[in-house]
Computed example of a mutant assay.
Amino acid sequence: MQTPQGGFDVGTRLRQLRNARGLSQRELAKRAGVTNSTISLVEQNSVSPSVSSLKKILDALPVSISAFFAGEDTSQPRPFYRADELTEIGDGHLSWRLVAARQPGRSMSIIHERYPPGSDSGEEMFEHEGEEGGVVVAGEIEITVSEEVAVLGEGDAYYFDSRLPHRFRNIGEAECVIVSASTPPTFSDGGQERHHV
């Protein structure tokens, strides 16, 4: 499911899921705590929602981020993916490209993350079930986990319990690239929990 520009068609996928559950735009907006116009604009692909905004909307359905981007694809699992086959789940500013998004029964998420200088995962600290880890491939990133803060550079790594509040910020002058993994592969089970990607 792609837009004419070749990206994932977020609007059409959201409309399909909303209609399949018999919800109006107004009802979905109310459940998600967003405005009616937000749902309308997303469904028209007039705006690219942030990951956290999309997460709020999907929690109201409820549908995980992984299931949302997996779509209805029932293709057989395969071992290799080219760079242009990774599914973009970022917000247009931050780039998070998910490996094997359409593979049925995935038990982890592997994400190629790009943080432009000055970007961050948001003012709000994230908390969700599971564990996550990653390796900084280029640049540097400031990571806060609970009360601990560290600046990691190329080759440095992190691994923590995702139930601890956490936040990612690129405080450097160059793009930061991270390859991360998390388990389970969903952002949440329908609650208010969120992942930084």
Rank of each mutant, 00 (worst) to 15 (best):
L54N: 04
L164E: 06
A138L: 02
E140D: 08
E43M: 13
S146N: 07
E127V: 00
G130H: 14
Y158C: 00
I65C: 03
V145Y: 01
R78W: 00
L94C: 07
L54W: 01
A70P: 09
L164W: 08
S182W: 14
S52G: 05
I171V: 10
V47P: 03
S50L: 10
E43F: 14
I110E: 00
L58E: 01
S48P: 02
L94Q: 07
G134K: 04
R31Q: 04
E148G: 05
V151G: 00
R15F: 15
V151S: 00
F80C: 00
S48F: 11
E129V: 10
V179K: 13
S95A: 14
E123T: 10
R194T: 14
Y115P: 04
I110V: 12
D84K: 05
G22V: 14
S109V: 14
V149M: 02
V51Q: 07
M125H: 06
E173V: 04
A150K: 11
H93T: 14
D91L: 05
P77D: 01
G22S: 15
V149S: 04
M108H: 04
R163V: 06
E132I: 05
V137C: 11
S107H: 15
F69V: 03
A100E: 00
G133D: 12
T186E: 09
S50V: 08
L23V: 08
T35V: 09
L86T: 00
R15H: 15
S119W: 03
N45K: 15
H166L: 07
V34R: 01
S37G: 10
R169L: 13
N170D: 07
Q25E: 07
V47Q: 06
E147T: 11
Q103Y: 13
S24A: 12
G130M: 13
I178D: 02
P77W: 00
N45V: 14
W96A: 13
V99N: 00
G153K: 07
Y81L: 03
Q103C: 13
A83Y: 14
F69C: 10
E124L: 10
V135R: 05
D156I: 04
F126E: 01
Q103P: 09
P62K: 11
A20C: 10
G92A: 12
Q44V: 13
Y115N: 04
R82V: 04
R31T: 03
L58I: 04
V136S: 07
D91I: 02
S182A: 14
E173Q: 07
S107N: 14
K30Y: 15
I39C: 03
I178M: 02
E113T: 12
G122E: 07
F168D: 01
V151R: 01
V179Y: 14
L94V: 06
Q2L: 14
K56I: 01
P104A: 15
V145R: 02
S64T: 09
S119C: 12
D156W: 03
N170S: 11
Q16R: 10
E132G: 02
E124P: 03
S188L: 10
A181L: 10
V99H: 01
E132M: 04
D189R: 15
R194P: 06
T183H: 10
D120F: 13
F69G: 04
S37L: 12
L54S: 03
S64G: 13
A20D: 13
P185T: 06
S64P: 07
A60T: 06
M1Q: 02
